[in-house]
Design a binder for these strands. Structure first.
Lengths: 236, 236
DNA sequence: CGCATCATTGAAGCACATCAAGGCCTGTGG
DNA sequence: CCACAGGCCTTGATGTGCTTCAATGATGCG
């Protein structure tokens, strides 16, 4: 039984990833106890967990369900005929991805690290959006925000130099660590490179440059402290 | 008096630009005789004409109205503090631009050549979308299509070399001339350069290269014949 | 016809890619 | 606990595609 309004499902599921730690081994589907305990995977409101680097859906597949990130990080990417990869976007807690007007997913989604996702039926949501004005508004808002993001990313990709790209990326992820100015990047430099259209070498050199200039400090390759946030922003 | 459904206004206004030729001198507002003859400019369903290079709206202005292109070409662009300009998109007949969920226009719109636009009240459309499912769907679809476009453009900007960018641009505009493989570009090379993130020199050199290879033929800088469409597509 | 804008062509420089090699983590098994 | 293996990251040397700077050639409009 579906609830009368999708809004009743919409608030972020309060589950944290550790609830599902036993299910993370190999994408077993599991049900979010905060939602409908008798729903199974692929149904409205259920939750699925994915291992690091596991494929969530492939570009071109029928977009019958979409997802909301509860925990973890997802990358949306496309592979080209020459084997190269473009990472269009990273999705984090609260982000929605895979919702299409109809047809197929225009990109491939993969888990960056172990993550938990709400699985939502596209058909049912489309039906509900027809009668639920608030839901329709949220979907619309999500699409518009996504477009602004894409246009903004196009700007970063085309107008910024390597150091500026990396600085913009770090600012985008600031506050995602354990509070303050500590960043814990879930993805590899290779992911970042394909997101910023740079090589791993240039990522490394740009980070080194930012550290030499005293704007950041590296605790480890993936754990970065922002020392001078304002100066970092001023670069862009 | 508004009609009961926006759909009654929605189909492309059949007016062609020459109906307004007398009004094109200096953006006098004029009313589309096919719609509401007693509506004035800035009202629902009215039509406004703009001269070449004339500003339609500025980035940051309140997005109280949006537009549908009846005839001509519009560029959506942003200006940076260093004086540089990025052209995010060109809008052509049938395209909708300037519709925002709320708030301000995120880009500046300017007429590339003399053009006629339907002016639509954002507030009224938002109200109608609440009760008109079909309209809401169209708006949603427009936003989703725009996002795919932006993501695709980001790919072209970041992954293609100069010749590929120009080839992709020509293909995008193919069929816009007087039929067949003749293209009549309404914009200058400078516009194209800011759209593809290249310099005018590189645009010129890339076009010259495509002509040397026998893929296109130049009748004039803005009128281009595609000689070998398949080979042009194969470049990308 | 004259001027302004736009387009073309050439020469030099630079930012990032590519190629290459070495170092550093992290997990695994003895 | 140590040794090893395989990613992943870092650093250096070289190459190149596009920009920048500069100058000339077209085009169109008053």
């Amino acid at each position: 039984m579906l609830k009368s309004s999708f809004r009743e499902y919409w608030p972020a599921c309060p589950c944290s990833l550790d609830i599902y730690s036993s299910a993370i081994r190999g994408a077993e589907s599991c049900v979010c106890p905060m939602l409908e305990p008798n729903l199974t995977s692929q149904q409205f409101g259920s939750v699925r967990c994915f291992d690091a680097d596991q494929e969530i859906f492939l570009q071109g597949q029928l977009a019958d369900v979409f997802f909301k990130v509860l925990d973890g990080t997802v990358r949306g990417c496309r592979y080209f005929s020459d084997g190269k990869r473009q990472v269009d976007r990273f999705y984090r807690s609260g982000d929605i991805f895979g919702f299409e007007i109809d047809g197929a997913y225009p990109f491939t989604a993969e888990a960056v690290n172990p993550c938990a996702l709400t699985v939502i039926s596209a058909r049912e949501v489309r039906q509900m959006a027809a009668i639920d004005q608030h839901l329709a508004w949220q979907l619309m808002s999500n699409a518009m925000t996504g477009m602004r993001r894409a246009v903004n990313h196009a700007t970063v990709l085309s107008r910024r130099n390597a150091v500026q790209k990396v600085a913009a990326f770090l600012i985008e992820w600031a506050g995602d660590g354990d509070g303050g100015n500590s960043i814990l990047l879930p993805m590899t430099h290779s992911d970042v490179a394909d997101y910023l259209n740079l090589t791993v070498e240039t990522i490394s050199r740009s980070i080194a440059k930012l550290e030499q200039e005293g704007l950041i400090r590296l605790q480890s390759p993936k754990r970065i402290n922002i020392v001078n946030f304002d100066a970092l922003e001023a670069l862009i």
